[in-house]
Simulated scan of single mutants.
Amino acid sequence: MIQNLPTEITDKVFGYLKETDQLQLAQVSQQLGCVFARHAREKYKSLYIREEETWSDDELKVILSLFGSTVDYISIQCTNVLNQLGELIEKYCNNLRYVKLQITNENFNAFKPVLNMTCIETLSLYNYDYRGIDLLQYVNPYCKNLHLDGISTAQGLHIRKLTHLEKLEVNEIRNIFEICSHLKKLRELTVGNGLGNVSDLKLDYLYPELEHLMLSFFEIALDLPVCSKLKRLTLLSIAYYIKKFGEIIGKYANTLKYLHLLPYYSKDEFYANNLIIVIRKCKRLEFLITRKGIIRVLFFSFLESLITALKENGFNTDRRLKMEVHCGKTDELKQELMNLFPNSEVWNLITLIQFDQMYI
């Protein structure tokens, strides 16, 4: 019988078999299971379970029982799953670090044990059609890194109780700044798809540890949160209803190093004028990424003001502000502006540089 063969021979036999046959043979005895585990090594370190290309329930049981301790990443993007799947993952995958789940009405109960696993470092939940408000109540309260997509405001209210979160990415939730103000350890916050959901009327919430705030497709009505340690501010396809948004960004003057500004509406002169205020106020600013049109307006309409603001901030030949065009073409713009303003003092104060050359 095959289990009586030397291990080296059995290992070679596994090499000639298709995966389905390998998994079937591994179930014959504990010895053959161990041989297959050595043969496959880290093949199942990352598991991708999808509707169109997945293993049978029995095969998945074998994989988890034999290789669970080596699995550090699981992505499950299917509606119908084994009812015991979450229990099996919880039992065998004690070194699991990254989990990505598509939540549906059909599979939510099966996933509950996974949500509470303490070994998980990053948890990503994509809510497809589950409407229960208990979606986040099963998440490990000590979770540090959470990515949420498709959850309702009612489901998102439970975020307040995940007070150990350090990094959060979330979409389409009203009053998100108030909700996240309860997360005193939060260091990175990304909020997206907020157009149509104007942000909180009150925005002077305190985020004591936040270092990176990213808003995309978002409407800002009045203000931004108070972040005493903010270093990076990324504003992509945002809509402002504030006349002096430069003053708002200037509230981070003592800490801000990196600003990525891409407005939703094309009001280049308005934003260029306000960037002068930002440059003047933010004494630690090192990097500025924005739209080509805004940089052009800075040169064509506000060049003297730009030079003055740069000098007031302490920029010189040894400390230059690094500027980059959103979505590339920086070199093209640089050549154009150097041809038009070849002797301007501004070239002693700034550097137009490609994004992949910047250390951020």
Rank of each mutant, 00 (worst) to 15 (best):
Q31L: 13
C34E: 12
F36G: 03
F36K: 02
R38T: 08
A40N: 11
Y44P: 00
Y44D: 05
K45N: 06
L47M: 10
L47C: 07
L47P: 03
Y48L: 15
I49W: 00
E51H: 14
E51C: 10
E52T: 10
E52N: 14
E53H: 14
T54K: 09
W55A: 08
W55H: 10
D57P: 02
D58T: 11
D58A: 12
D58C: 05
E59F: 05
L60T: 02
L60M: 14
L60E: 03
K61C: 09
K61Y: 08
K61I: 08
K61F: 11
V62W: 06
V62I: 14
V62C: 00
S65K: 02
L66R: 08
S69A: 05
S69C: 11
S69H: 10
S69P: 06
T70D: 10
T70V: 09
D72S: 05
Y73F: 12
Y73H: 00
I74N: 00
S75H: 07
S75C: 13
I76L: 10
T79W: 11
T79D: 15
L82Q: 11
N83P: 09
N83W: 05
N83K: 11
Q84A: 15
G86N: 02
G86K: 04
L88M: 05
L88A: 06
I89Y: 01
E90H: 01
E90M: 03
K91E: 06
K91M: 11
K91A: 13
Y92L: 01
C93Y: 01
N94R: 11
N95Q: 07
L96V: 09
L96C: 01
Q102F: 13
Q102R: 07
I103E: 06
T104F: 14
N105S: 14
E106S: 10
N109V: 15
A110D: 08
A110L: 08
A110V: 12
A110P: 03
P113E: 04
P113K: 00
V114S: 03
N116G: 03
N116T: 10
N116I: 11
M117F: 03
M117R: 03
T118R: 13
T118L: 14
T118E: 15
C119N: 10
C119R: 06
C119Y: 04
T122N: 03
T122Y: 03
T122E: 12
L123C: 07
Y126V: 06
Y126S: 05
Y128C: 11
D129T: 04
D129A: 07
R131E: 14
R131Y: 08
I133L: 13
I133A: 11
D134F: 07
L135M: 07
L136Y: 05
L136M: 10
Q137I: 03
N140V: 10
P141G: 06
Y142F: 15
C143T: 15
C143Q: 14
K144H: 11
N145K: 12
N145G: 06
G150W: 15
G150R: 11
G150F: 10
G150T: 05
I151N: 05
I151R: 06
